[in-house]
């Protein structure tokens, strides 16, 4: 009985950590799309850059705090580099360029030596692990760290969105021409917003790497981006609390079906059930976009969906 309870408690810790990491990841996306209207279909690239930068620096002896900060910074820099050529173009070009960037990045990570190639990297140091705690205690401590950092990013982006700067971002989303007419440097604002979102994703990536204890290119496939989109659109685009609600619903559903997906039901093999689950994700996304594109908490008038 106590074994069962311990298992349940451990499961709860991993559920909450995964969900919180996705909230953090989505907070970055929400700043780019929800606030500024930038369609980033390659968000997972910044997760990967944050994860690999932090881990690789850590492996080479850089203290974890600095390695993590570097993960955030390098992600943000890549955000700037990608945004500059793409943001001068229209929405659909940005979507294509970001999706392409994420796939190309994964190909590169999979094929170069220093990232460990397809095997990836494992056995690196992770925060709070050297305190002599058992794995269970560490899981909860690490969860507290993830929640704290997510709350920080959450508060920071809320602050940015409510500031005069954030009002310009929303103006750009609503009507770019008006922002231009007011003398705002649109490209500058867009690039900064994109970079900030990328940096937040980089932090999520570094934390994800610490939590997994091993990373490889398989962790950074395009589906991760689309899971983030589902969570954002489900909870409410442009609302940070929407990310929390979306992540809880998404991971709730995910966990509820996980037992069947692991073992298979009757004659249906596990990999086919996993495919069926992604079919359901796809259908959910379509249904949401038809009937409630602003999500549960979102306000329709807040969204540049009419363009």
């Amino acid at each position: 009985m106590s074994g069962l309870l311990a298992g349940l408690v451990a499961y709860l810790a991993s559920f909450l950590t995964n969900a919180t990491l996705y909230v953090l990841f989505v907070v970055g996306l929400n700043l780019q799309y929800g606030t500024t209207g930038l369609v980033n279909f390659g968000h997972v690239a910044f997760l990967a850059i944050g994860a690999y930068t932090a881990v690789l620096l850590g492996v080479h002896g850089v203290p974890i705090l600095f390695a993590t900060a570097a993960g955030v910074a390098v992600s943000a820099v890549f955000g700037v580099l990608l945004a500059f050529p793409a943001l001068r173009l229209r929405d659909d070009y940005l979507a294509i360029v970001t999706i392409g960037f994420a796939e190309v990045l994964r190909t590169v990570v999979n094929n170069v030596q220093f990232t460990g190639g397809p095997q990836g990297i494992y056995g690196y140091a992770v925060p709070l692990r050297d305190l002599g705690l058992g794995y269970q205690a560490w899981q909860w401590l690490f969860l507290a760290l993830v929640v704290a950092l997510t709350a920080l990013a959450f508060a920071l982006t809320e602050y940015v969105v409510r500031s005069p700067y954030g009002r310009v971002l929303k103006a750009i989303r609503e009507d770019q021409e008006v922002a231009v007419a007011l003398g705002k440097n649109i490209v500058g604002y867009k690039v900064a917003s994109f970079a900030l979102g990328a940096g937040v994703a980089g932090l999520a990536g570094a934390l994800l790497a610490y939590y997994y204890g091993a990373i490889n290119p398989h962790n950074f496939e395009a589906i991760v981006t689309f899971e983030a989109w589902i969570i954002m659109v489900l909870g409410g685009t442009g609302r940070n609390w929407g990310a929390v609600l979306g992540a809880l619903i998404y991971f709730g559903l995910y966990s509820a079906t996980a037992r069947y997906a692991m073992s298979g039901v009757g004659a249906i093999a596990a990999d086919r059930l996993a495919a069926l689950r992604i079919v359901a994700i796809g259908v959910l996304l379509v249904v949401l976009m038809i009937y409630r594109p602003q999500g549960i908490l979102g306000r329709k008038e807040d969204l540049g969906l009419e363009r």
Binding site: G37, V39, F41, D91, D92, A95, I223, F226, W229, V233, I278, V279, I281, G282, V283, L284, L285, V286, M289, I290, P293, G304, L305, E306, R307
Partner: peptide
């Protein structure tokens, strides 16, 4: 709008 349709097309692709 075009963005909503683009997002829906991702859903169609996954399904």
């Amino acid at each position: 709008g075009t963005v909503a349709m683009m997002i829906a097309s991702i859903g169609v692709a996954l399904a």
